[in-house]
């Protein structure tokens, strides 16, 4: 357990899609300097919950979020909160790699550019280089930065997306099943990367691969039917779950 105050505190969060309730009274803290895994069967609401943390649910027409979510004590659903700044502080990596159909350089430079994070060309180039290095992609692409991002392999594309998220210098990174579209080797690289990034950013990762959750996370939350069934240290959850449903899921009875 960390002795910092939690980075994100979510209390009594409910989400509706139209009349259907997708998240039912979930409370979780996301800690600084650690990886939190959200697991559970398909349709259990883990991705929905992740998307409430940077307000990506705002883009879904009939989604409604209720409850209290705070980033460093600041209410992110308050009317004063600028979503644009929020999303720069809470970065996101998506299920399917989604690079912009632009060059590798432009993909990474886009965020710093719209937020005005670099005052000169060389500073911007520095940011791009650091981000690609941190994402473990620099060596593979340094000679072809002007190639299209969509021409990379799936695993490289996903690391490019991570570099793109890192480039705006976020405090939290949300990963929504980042490896589900990748082969095992690319997956291993991403997991390695998550380890390396852990010290610098608070990371929340949604996965339905339990081995992955066990490998990369320090804390795990188990969701089922929109409810948070159990939340605790990963070792606890996987070796000694308190709840029947958690045990059934982990031992593969359903899911």
């Amino acid at each position: 357990m960390s002795n910092h105050p939690p980075k994100i505190t979510a209390t009594h969060v409910n989400v509706w899609y139209g009349a259907k309730k997708a998240i039912d009274d979930v409370s979780i803290d996301i800690d600084q300097d650690s990886v939190t895994a959200l697991i559970g069967p398909s349709g259990c609401g883990k991705s929905t919950f992740l998307r409430t943390l940077n307000r990506m649910n705002d883009t879904v027409a009939n989604a409604r979020v209720q409850g209290d979510i705070r980033l460093d004590g600041e209410d992110i659903y308050s009317p004063d909160m600028d979503v644009v700044q929020l999303r720069a502080r809470v970065g996101m990596v998506f299920q399917k790699p989604n690079p912009f159909p632009k060059s590798i350089y432009e993909n990474v430079a886009y965020g710093p550019r719209i937020h005005g994070l670099a005052s000169s060309r060389s500073e911007l180039e520095g940011i791009v280089q650091t981000s690609l290095k941190r994402a473990g992609l620099w060596e593979e692409v340094k000679d072809r930065l002007s190639d299209s991002g969509t021409a990379l392999s799936g695993g490289q594309q996903q690391r490019l997306c991570i570099a793109r998220a890192i480039a705006v210098d976020p405090e939290v990174i949300l990963m929504d099943e980042p490896c589900s579209a990748l082969d095992p080797i690319a997956t291993a690289k991403i997991e390695e990367l998550i380890h390396a990034l852990k010290g610098r950013y608070a990371i929340a990762i949604v996965t339905h691969n339990m081995q992955q959750a066990a490998r990369v996370s320090q804390r795990t939350a188990f969701f089922h039917l929109g409810q948070l069934v159990e939340y605790g240290a990963t070792t606890e959850i996987f070796t000694n779950p308190r709840e029947e449903r958690t045990r059934d899921y982990i031992t593969g009875r359903y899911g």
Partner: peptide
């Protein structure tokens, strides 16, 4: 234009106007 492009841009903190004028419109 696939929604994933919009998600990507929103995810790095582009405003809705920037998403459209930087990404959706050119495509």
């Amino acid at each position: 234009v696939p929604p994933s492009i919009r998600d990507a841009a929103l995810g790095v903190g582009a405003s809705p106007i920037q998403v459209v004028f930087h990404h959706v419109l050119p495509l």
